[in-house]
Design a protein around this nucleic acid. Structure first.
Lengths: 108, 108
DNA sequence: CTCTTTAGCAACCAGATGGTTGCCTTTGAA
DNA sequence: TTCAAAGGCAACCATCTGGTTGCTAAAGAG
């Protein structure tokens, strides 16, 4: 039962995605690496707030930061990103299987 | 910008998925509708704990419960499930786009 | 009828989370 | 060489979260 164990380890990634501010940060990083103050600009929360969220995303492996002179640039992280997608696909497939099973069940 | 707003509304779903116990519950529901005490059996947490998690999943629209005599049966919910998958695909695609952009950037 | 199973409700608890502010350091621009 | 911009660190705070226990109610089995 390796799939089931895989599904469990993906929980932290989902948890990291489970916040609107963090989703917005990811969306903004979609247009390329960006500094913290840049990210803070339109965010509606404080710089430290943004920093905290970035750390959470980093902890889930979704994002990576590096100091570049005065500022620290953050970018989307490839590897875990793809891993996350794969876990999502796994779960989707599990669900699909379950759906066919469910259809053979009583409807409502 | 409807996509960006879509991504934001999917946060609660991710949050619901962001807990290992809940992922395990979903996995178990994959094999068909199940009662709370049945779900509690191998879970390692109390019945009330399971109930709470089910309520969270229900709040995210991932699961639906119905009283059937003495017991309450819970099953995976189709609609939001598919919606969730679609949001995931959306985000995946956004990320894919961003990846190609990133590749044209400096590597490391 | 009575008793066991199944579950709901409510209170409670410790720890995580999201957010803030204040102060200090580093770096680059003037 | 001085000063503003960009961030890190730490403390603090309120609320949410995951989990528990105890008690009560409803359904079914005997």
């Amino acid at each position: 039962m390796p799939e089931r164990r895989k599904a469990q380890t993906s929980a932290p990634v989902f948890a990291a995605l489970g916040d609107e501010n963090r989703l917005r940060l990811l969306a903004r990083l979609t247009s390329g690496p960006m500094s913290i103050s840049r990210l803070t600009a339109g965010s509606g929360i404080s710089r430290q707030g943004v920093t905290k969220h970035l750390r959470v995303l980093e902890g889930a492996g979704l994002v990576r930061g590096s100091r570049k002179g005065k500022e620290s640039l953050w970018r989307l992280e490839r590897r875990r990103l793809e891993e996350a997608q794969r876990s999502l696909d796994l779960i989707s497939k599990q669900w699909d299987e379950s759906l066919s099973k469910l259809r053979m069940f009583v409807e409502e």
